[in-house]
Amino acid sequence: MFAVLIDQFWSLTIAGIALGFIYVLVSLGYTMVYGVLRMINFANSEIFMWGTFGTIVTSRDIFGYTQTSAPATGPKLALVLLSQLLISMAVAGVTAIFVEYVAYRRLRAKGTNRLATLISAIGISIVLSELMRLLTDSRPVGSPRVLEKIILGEVWGANLRLDTIITIFAAALIYFLLERFVKLSRMGKAIRAVSMNEDAAKLMGVNLNRVITTTFLVGGLATGAAGFFYITVFEYTKFNIGFTMGMAAFTAAVLGGIGNIRGAFYGGLFLGLLEVYASAVLGTQWKAVTVFIVLVLVLLFKPNGLFGEAVQTTRA
């Protein structure tokens, strides 16, 4: 049972870290919005799904790659990858702002109960995923292979594949930039102020609506970047792909302590590794169950998550 795990420990670890970084970026979309609004950004999974389509549309329709065309090389490769990344981020960012405007803003102005907002967010995520289902005829969409999956080298018997390495380093860089943004910029300071105390922040002259829109935008950008990395590694998407990803990323956010950016980082990596190891030991069909059981255990014995603030007592 554990033979697979011991045999392929390092290649599993590398795959787990890459998956973990994708989780980190998606869970930023949950954790940042939660930090500011104290509400689950339910539509984040669909924002991710739209991001993955942004990547595919860029390579397929803008650069004209097909399933059979040769992978790009040299400067062309860098150009295509970079524009894929930026367009996915833009698509997801715009979708996130749209979600905030349509599903959250009006209800927030009315100061209504949290459940109404949750249902309205559920509504908008149904709209987003159904729209994509109609656009794609419910079919899965494969991505043309832009990046050839060269094996760069071998470490302790594990292959270092180019796409995994790019995912790990680029995702880490994007995470780092976002973390610096929230930590150092004036807007980031405002975001943190609102998440600490909304009323006090308002009294100090923070423009609440702008902060919230920016939070959705930043979360959306991170989620869109995750969409790009997901396509680069797995090369496939579908209108309902957001669900599994959203569940895992939300679990990662809670695991690290929701509302906490650093928590999303550790939670995402931990969950990515856990998922990969668990599927090696128990078989892939049980990995979601393992993840949930660990989540329940963490919540029971360390209810604020590994790095979280005390939101345990907030009310539904």
Binding site: L299, Q312, R315, A316
Partner: peptide, 8 residues
């Protein structure tokens, strides 16, 4: 647990 944690 309460609220969103119970939900998840």
């Amino acid at each position: 647990l309460r609220g969103d944690y119970l939900a998840i």
